[in-house]
Simulated scan of single mutants.
Amino acid sequence: MLSKEINENVLRTLLPQRSRQSYKNNFGHSFIIAGNQEMGGAGQIAASACVNAGSGLTTVVTDSINLPAIHSQLPETMVISNSNNLAYLKAQLQSADHILIGPGLGQDQEDWARLVDLIKSVDAKIPLVLDADAITFYSQAGSSIQAVFKMHPLIMTPHLGEWRRLCQEKISSEDNDSIQKWVDQEGVFLLLKSSRSRIFMPQSNFYYQNTFGNPAMATGGMGDCLAGLVTACLGQVASIADAIALAMGLHSYTGDKLAQKHYVVRPSQLAQKLPLVMHELAN
Rank of each mutant, 00 (worst) to 15 (best):
D133W: 08
L93S: 10
M217P: 04
R164E: 14
G235K: 05
S204R: 12
E169I: 04
S178P: 07
G213E: 04
N7M: 07
L274S: 03
A238G: 07
G43M: 00
Q44I: 13
L89H: 02
G40L: 07
C233W: 00
H262P: 03
G106R: 01
V237T: 15
G35Y: 06
K125W: 06
L74H: 04
V60H: 00
A282G: 09
N84K: 14
N7H: 13
Q73S: 15
S64L: 02
G235Y: 03
I126G: 01
T77S: 13
K261L: 11
S195P: 01
G54M: 11
D224E: 07
Q21K: 14
T219K: 14
H152C: 08
L11K: 02
G28W: 06
A216P: 00
K90H: 05
F212K: 01
Y207C: 12
S48V: 04
K261A: 11
Y208D: 10
A46M: 07
T59Q: 06
L154H: 08
S30V: 13
L192Y: 04
L246G: 01
G220V: 10
A141G: 00
P68V: 06
N176C: 12
G35C: 10
F206H: 14
R198C: 13
I80L: 14
G161H: 10
D97N: 15
S173M: 00
S81V: 11
N84A: 13
R18G: 05
I80G: 04
A243E: 03
S252G: 02
T59L: 04
S252P: 04
H71W: 07
L270F: 06
S178Q: 15
T254P: 02
F200K: 04
D131H: 01
G35K: 09
A49P: 02
S48G: 11
Q73N: 15
A241V: 02
K273R: 15
V60I: 15
A232F: 01
L270R: 01
V116C: 08
L67Y: 00
V230G: 06
W112A: 08
T211C: 12
S19R: 08
V277L: 03
L191N: 11
L11I: 01
K120S: 10
G220Q: 05
A216Q: 07
N26V: 06
L57Y: 15
T211V: 10
S3H: 13
K24N: 08
I65G: 00
Q209V: 08
S72W: 01
L226G: 05
M78R: 06
C233P: 00
H152V: 06
D108Y: 00
A91G: 09
G220M: 08
A96C: 05
S72H: 11
A141T: 03
D131C: 06
Q44Y: 12
A47K: 03
Y263G: 02
S64W: 04
M201N: 09
N85T: 08
T58L: 02
D175E: 05
G187T: 07
T59S: 15
M222F: 09
L67R: 09
R18W: 06
L154E: 03
E174S: 10
N85K: 12
D256W: 03
V265D: 09
S30L: 11
L130E: 10
W182D: 03
L276V: 14
S195V: 14
C225A: 13
Q140R: 12
K193F: 01
P202V: 02
Q94R: 15
